[in-house]
Design a protein around this nucleic acid. Structure first.
Lengths: 192, 192, 192, 192
DNA sequence: GATGAATGAGTTTTCATTCAT
DNA sequence: AATGAATGAAAACTCATTCAT
C-alpha cells in the first residue's frame, strides 16, 4: 500500500473513530456531520468523499461494531462452550462497549427501514450462534428450550431494555454489569 | 366552569386527540406541530397557548395513555385476580392500543431525559400493580419469584422488543396478539 | 381585509418585487433565495412561508409578468386592431420589461420540465391572440399566411434570439427597440 | 511529437469525447467534471491538467463542434452552391448533431459572458458564409435581401427556438428534420 | 383565548478546484 | 504528466417558537 492509500485509510479510520465518539456522546440523530468532521479535524466535504451519506456512515460504524461482536461470539462458540459461558462472554463484550450499544438501543428503532433491515441482518448473525448452541444443548438434553426464537426475543428484549433505560438503572458505570447475574439466572429459567 | 374555561378545555382535548392521531401515523419526531394544529383545525399558535413546548404536548399525550392503562390495571387488580389474568388484561389493552405503544416503544428512548424520567414514573405505576400482586402470590406460595423487579424488566423488555420490531414480526395486525401465549407461558417460567 | 391579511399581502408583494429585482440582476439560477430574503429585509424562512420552493417563487414571478403581457395583448386584440398594430404593442411591452424577459429568454429552457410546461402554457395564451388575429386577416385576405404556427415560431424565435444575445447586440438600452422596425417588416414578409 | 506529447494529446481527445457525451446526456451545468473524468477513465485531477476550468473544457467542446460545422459549410460554399443548397446542408448537419446543438441552445445563454462571446465568435464564422453567399445572390439578382444580418438573425432565431423547445415539438427524433421544409420555404420568403 | 405571520438557527449534500504524491 | 484525496463555500429547505393583532 503506497503512501496515498495509507493516508486515505487513515482518514477513513479517523472519521469512523470520530463518528463513534460523537455518536456515543450525542446519539446518531443529534450528531450533525459537521461535528464529526470538526472532531476529526478534517474538512466537511472530506467526510462525504468517504461516505456518500450520513446514513452510510452510521451504518458503517454500526457494522464494524456488530462484526466485532459477531466474531467474538463465533470464537467462543467454536470452542464448544456451554450457552451460559457464551452468554457471559457476550455480556462482557457488551459491558465493554456499553456506551455504544446503549445509544444504539435507544435509536435503532427510529431510523430508516434500510438501516433497520441491515441492523437486523447483523443481529441475526449473533442470534444464529445462540440458536445453534441452544439447539445442540437441547439435543444433549442439557437444556429444554421449546421455543428458541421466542426465548432469544426475551433475552435481547431485556438487554435492550436495560440499555435503553441505562440512566434510570445506574448513575454511572455499566447496567449490564449490574444485572449480569440476574440476566444469567433468569435466562436459565427460561431455557430449562 | 364558565364558557371560556369550557372552550379552552375543549380546544385542549382537540389538540390532544389530533396529536395522538398524528403521532401514531408518523411518530413523535416526524410530526411537526404544524401538522397537529392543521389536523385539529386550530391555529398554529393556539397549540402553544395550551402546551409551552412540543415536548410538553408529547408528554401529556403519553401521560393520558399511561393513566388509562394504569386505571385499567388497577381495576382488575382490585378484583383480586391472579397475575396471569392481570397480564392477560394488560396485553389485551396493549393490543387495542398497539399502534400507539409501538410508536412509543420506538421513540421513547430517544427523547430528552426529562421526558424519559416522567415516562418511567408513569410506567412505574403500572409496574407497581404487577409488583404488588406478585408479592401477594409469593406470600401465598402461588408464585416463587425471587427478584420481582428483575422479572418485570424481562416482561417489559420483551414487550418493548416486540413493539419496536413489530414490522419485522408481523406484516399486519398485532404483534402482541401473535406472541401473547408465548409471553404468558415464558413469564410463568420466570416467576415460578 | 384586516391588518394582518394586509401585512401578509404586503410581505408577499415585497418578496415578489425583491425576487424580480434579484432575478433581473443575476438570473434565476444564480440568485440564491437568501439574497432575495435579505433584499426584501425579511427572514429567510419567511420566504418559504409564502412560497414552498424556490421554483414556486420563480413560477409566480414569471406568471405575473406573463399575465400582465397577456392582458395587455388581449386589450389591444379586442379593439380589433391589425396584426401589425398588435405586434407593435407587444414589442413595446417587451421593451418596457426587457431586462426581465431577457433573463427569462436566457434561462427558461434550462429549468425543470414542470416550470417549462407552465411557461409554455402562459406563452400559448399570448400566441393564441396572434393566431386568432392572423386567421381573421387571412379570412379577410389582408394576410396570406399558410402556416400560422410556423410563422409564429419564427417571430418568437427572433425575439428570443435578440433577448438572449442582447449584450452582443447593444451596449446598453433595448435590443428590441433597436430591431423593432426590422422585426415588423420581416414578419410582414413572412405572413404575406 | 515525442511519446509524451502523443500521450497527452490522446488523453486530451479522450476527455473531449467523454465531455461531449456527458454534456449531451445531461447538459453542461448538470454534468459534474467528476462524471466526465470517470467516463474517460482518467483521474479527476488529470482533467484539470488539460483544462484549467470546467468552463474552458466546455468552450473547447463547443469550439470543436462549431469548427466542424464551419468547415462543412465552407466546403459547400466553395463549390458555389445556392443559398438554399447551403442551408439544406447546414440543416442536415444540425440534424446529425441535434442532440448536441439542442443542449447547446438550451444552456448557451446561461453561461458567462466570456463563454458567450467566444460562442458568438464561432457562430459569426458560420454566419459569415451565409452572409457572403447571400451578398453574391443579391448581386446576381437571385435574392433581394435588404438586411442580411437581420435575416440571418431570424434564421438562427428559429433554429434555436426549435432546438430549445425540441421536446415540445417532437416526442422523439429530430425537430429540425420535422420543420426543415417549413424553415426553407419561410427563409426564402424573407430573403426574396 | 385564539390567531398565524414571521423568525433564523440548523442540517445535509454537491462539486469545482488544489496540491502533495 | 497523471493522480485522487482533501477542501470548504454555497445552497435549499424545515420547524419549534414568538408575539403583535
Amino acid at each position: 500500500m503506497n503512501k496515498r492509500q495509507l493516508q486515505k485509510k487513515r482518514t477513513r479510520s479517523l472519521i469512523l473513530e470520530s463518528a463513534k465518539q460523537c455518536f456515543m456522546e450525542n446519539g446518531f440523530l443529534n450528531t450533525p456531520v459537521s461535528k464529526i468532521s470538526s472532531h476529526a479535524k478534517i474538512a466537511h466535504g472530506t467526510l462525504f468523499a468517504h461516505f456518500p451519506t450520513k446514513e452510510a456512515l452510521i451504518l458503517e460504524v454500526i457494522t464494524i461494531e456488530m462484526k466485532k461482536i459477531g466474531e467474538e461470539i463465533q470464537k467462543f462458540a467454536q470452542t464448544s462452550e456451554s450457552i451460559e459461558e457464551i452468554l457471559v462472554h457476550y455480556l462482557d463484550f457488551l459491558i465493554e462497549e456499553e456506551q455504544f450499544f446503549s445509544v444504539l438501543a435507544k435509536e435503532r428503532l427510529f431510523y430508516s427501514n434500510e438501516l433497520k433491515r441491515k441492523l437486523i441482518f447483523h443481529e441475526s448473525i449473533i442470534r444464529g450462534y445462540f440458536h445453534q448452541i441452544l439447539e445442540e444443548e437441547n439435543a444433549q438434553n442439557i437444556s429444554h428450550c421449546e421455543d428458541i426464537t421466542s426465548s432469544l426475543n426475551w433475552l435481547f428484549g431485556v438487554i435492550n431494555y436495560y440499555f435503553g433505560l441505562k440512566e434510570s438503572f445506574v448513575a454511572s458505570g455499566s447496567v449490564i454489569s449490574k444485572f449480569k447475574d440476574s440476566i444469567l439466572s433468569t435466562f436459565k429459567k427460561i431455557i430449562l
